[in-house]
Amino acid sequence: VMVVLDSDHSRDHVLDELRTYGPLVTQGQYIVVADTLLGYGEAPKTPTKRSKIWHPGDEPYAALTAYLKETDRFETDDVINGKLVLSSSPGG
């Protein structure tokens, strides 16, 4: 079982999804956290002309970082990340 998370991108929502769906992922498969790129931005450069604003620390990358500290079931796949020339989900 593989899971892709790409809905509400707030930290708490994504962290809740990771905690809920993480146990469903079978060994050797992936849980993909979309749009982790939002966590690499600087606060003054956060896009504000949108319906939802994800400030640094309240986005998918922050949730992923917190979740990886809670569990040893998952790790970032550096091989796949290294193959991605351009991604909206680095490390996710």
Rank of each mutant, 00 (worst) to 15 (best):
V33C: 15
F74D: 01
G57Q: 00
E59K: 03
V25Q: 01
D16Y: 08
V85W: 09
S89K: 09
L84Y: 04
G91N: 12
P47L: 06
T20P: 10
S88H: 14
Y40L: 14
D58T: 00
D16V: 09
R19W: 07
E70G: 06
L37V: 12
V33T: 12
K69E: 13
L84K: 10
G39D: 01
A62G: 03
A63N: 02
L64M: 15
E42V: 10
L64P: 04
Q29S: 15
T76L: 09
L15S: 10
L84V: 08
W54E: 00
T46N: 07
G92H: 06
G41V: 01
P47R: 07
E70A: 05
F74A: 02
E42F: 12
L37Y: 07
S88D: 11
S7L: 13
M2Q: 14
T36M: 07
T20Q: 15
H9Y: 10
Y21L: 15
G57R: 09
D72C: 05
H9F: 11
Y21C: 10
R73H: 13
D16E: 15
H55G: 01
T20M: 15
L24M: 15
Y40Q: 06
T48L: 08
L37T: 03
D6H: 13
Y67C: 01
S87C: 12
V85K: 11
P23T: 02
T76G: 05
L64C: 08
Y40H: 10
I80M: 11
E59D: 09
P23E: 06
T71K: 08
Q27D: 12
R50M: 09
T26P: 04
P44C: 03
D58M: 02
D78A: 14
G57W: 02
E17H: 15
K69A: 15
R50A: 11
